[in-house]
Amino acid sequence: MNKILGLIVLLMASLVQAAPLQDVQFDDIAFKHAWENKESIITNEYVEEGQTLDNWQHLLAYRQYPGHDEPAEVIRQYLTQIKPTQKPAVYKRDESSKDIILVFLVEADDKSHLEFNIHRFVAEDGIVRSYQFAARNFKRKLSALGDEISEKKSKWIGLVGRLRAADFTH
């Protein structure tokens, strides 16, 4: 009986530890937890204070892909789903292809805005995880997005390359 009770307590503690953080810092931007999905792909998305998933300018996301241990497999499925506007630029972080960073643009179906995306797909602890930073601007302010990308692209890629699961969970 004590063993069962101990296992229940341990399981509950691990669930609490895996809860998403409400606040995450990235490039001097404070992000607030905005959305979570725990279905087949576990997803947590964060936006800046005062913004929503409908009007964000910067987005940070953390995903887990249970049942997958190869980033290339997840990347193929992901790119089919999101349909980047241009072919992604690939930055391989290691020789084993277990840690890959992609940089690409996505245009909204209604052409209202453009997103600059940096995605890191990495095999960690037996599963694939992804870390995403995106900057978006609506077409009327597109030059501002271009200026921001020119100024910060290299820094953002480096910061995404250092993100870890612990940055997003308790």
Results as ranks from 00 to 15, higher is better:
22 Q>C: 06
24 V>S: 04
25 Q>T: 15
26 F>D: 01
28 D>W: 13
32 K>H: 11
33 H>L: 11
39 E>T: 03
39 E>G: 03
40 S>M: 14
40 S>L: 12
40 S>V: 11
42 I>Y: 11
43 T>N: 08
44 N>M: 00
44 N>Y: 06
45 E>Q: 10
45 E>Y: 05
46 Y>N: 04
46 Y>E: 02
48 E>M: 12
49 E>A: 06
50 G>E: 13
50 G>Y: 09
51 Q>L: 09
52 T>M: 07
55 N>L: 12
56 W>R: 05
56 W>I: 08
58 H>E: 12
63 R>V: 00
64 Q>E: 05
64 Q>I: 01
65 Y>F: 02
65 Y>C: 00
68 H>E: 06
69 D>K: 07
69 D>V: 08
70 E>V: 03
71 P>S: 06
71 P>E: 05
71 P>G: 06
71 P>M: 01
72 A>G: 08
73 E>A: 13
76 R>I: 08
76 R>Q: 09
77 Q>K: 10
81 Q>E: 14
82 I>K: 03
82 I>R: 06
82 I>M: 11
83 K>Q: 12
86 Q>C: 03
87 K>W: 09
91 Y>E: 05
91 Y>H: 09
95 E>W: 14
96 S>W: 15
100 I>A: 05
101 I>Q: 02
102 L>T: 04
103 V>I: 14
103 V>G: 08
104 F>R: 07
104 F>G: 06
105 L>K: 09
105 L>A: 12
106 V>L: 10
107 E>Q: 06
108 A>W: 05
109 D>S: 13
113 H>C: 11
114 L>V: 09
114 L>K: 04
115 E>L: 02
